[in-house]
């Protein structure tokens, strides 16, 4: 149940109030920058690109007056998962790996190619988590939803439900730590009554049965929570007519510039390695 602990304490979703340059950017600009890190970090095969996008949140953090330690603390609880994945990666040797052998203990050897792959994997993870952590610490919850709506606004003209989608994403984000806390308290309550969720030497059917008492309260609590939130929304006239906005999030010239830079960065990060290879191959 380590994962639950992680989700209860992630730095994701904690807005840090400040009046920095980064905070003042419009939410859709912040989304584009988030994408500028997350997209190359998840799809790029180049270690250089992954390293570059990992640095980006760490460079932007001082500008946003967010401490880097705050961002890094959020990733600590999942490090065991990453370590496990890294260990598997190192243990399984690749076919036709002709790269330099860095270290060898018995049949297990660590080659340069494996080390690079593990390093890249770790950096990917750090980049994504710090980028999301930074994004949420400079974007208030309201802005998180407004940004989604702004990004999808062009599609709203053709009937795309931009606003409900924005609301759903905001609610889902907000509820993840709460649901994690709820699962945990139910697990603990059941454990206090003798339930065993650990890896006991029992049959799979009995193991599955142990989860049933967990699912009922969690589902009922979800229905109650949804009802409470829906009533709170209805009390604020949700769904009674066209929605208006109090906050203007269009942004100024600085935002337009920042958006263009973010798009160029993303394109460069995605297309860069291919272009570099083409130039290198041409010589």
């Amino acid at each position: 149940m380590k994962g639950l602990e992680f989700w209860k304490h992630v730095s994701i979703g904690r807005y840090v109030e400040s009046d920095s340059m980064v905070h003042r950017m419009s939410p859709s600009t912040k989304y584009l920058w988030l994408l500028a890190v997350v997209l190359p970090a998840s799809v790029s095969r180049s270690a250089v690109v992954v390293a570059a996008v990992t640095l980006l949140p760490l460079v932007l953090a001082p500008l946003a007056r967010v401490r880097i330690r705050f961002l890094l603390r959020g990733i600590l609880p999942v490090l065991p998962f990453v370590a496990l994945a890294a260990a598997i990666q190192l243990l399984i040797s690749w076919p036709n790996d002709g790269s330099l052998v860095l270290a060898a203990i018995g049949p297990v050897s660590v080659t340069a190619r494996e080390a690079l792959a593990v390093l890249t994997m770790g950096l990917r993870f750090v980049a994504i988590m710090t980028a999301i952590g930074l994004f949420t610490s400079v974007t208030s919850e309201g802005d998180t939803a407004r940004g989604v709506e702004d990004l999808f606004a062009p599609l709203a003209a053709v009937g795309f439900p931009a606003r409900p989608l924005a609301l759903m994403i905001a609610v889902a984000f907000r509820f993840i730590p709460i649901v994690a806390g709820e699962f945990e308290s139910v697990v603990k309550a059941q454990a206090a009554r003798g339930a065993d969720f650990g890896a006991g030497a029992r049959g799979p059917i009995r193991k599955a049965k142990a989860y049933l008492p967990l699912l009922v309260p969690v589902t009922i609590r979800a229905l109650e929570r949804a009802e409470a939130l829906a009533e709170a929304m209805e009390a604020r006239c949700y769904g009674t007519g066209p929605a208006t906005r109090y906050v203007d999030t269009a942004g100024g010239a600085a935002d337009v510039l920042a958006r263009i830079v973010a798009l160029l960065w993303t394109i460069a990060a995605l297309a860069g390695p291919a272009v570099a290879a083409a130039i290198g191959g041409g010589r």
Binding site: M168, A172, I176, A180, F183, A222, G239
Partner: peptide, 25 residues
């Protein structure tokens, strides 16, 4: 529209619950 708001919220909650369900793996 009332039920629509409720379903919208419940939908988000289910997304969060699927995410937490993935932890019990």
């Amino acid at each position: 529209m009332k039920r629509n708001g409720f379903k919208l919220v419940l939908t988000s909650l289910f997304a969060a619950m699927i995410a937490m369900g993935a932890l019990f793996s």
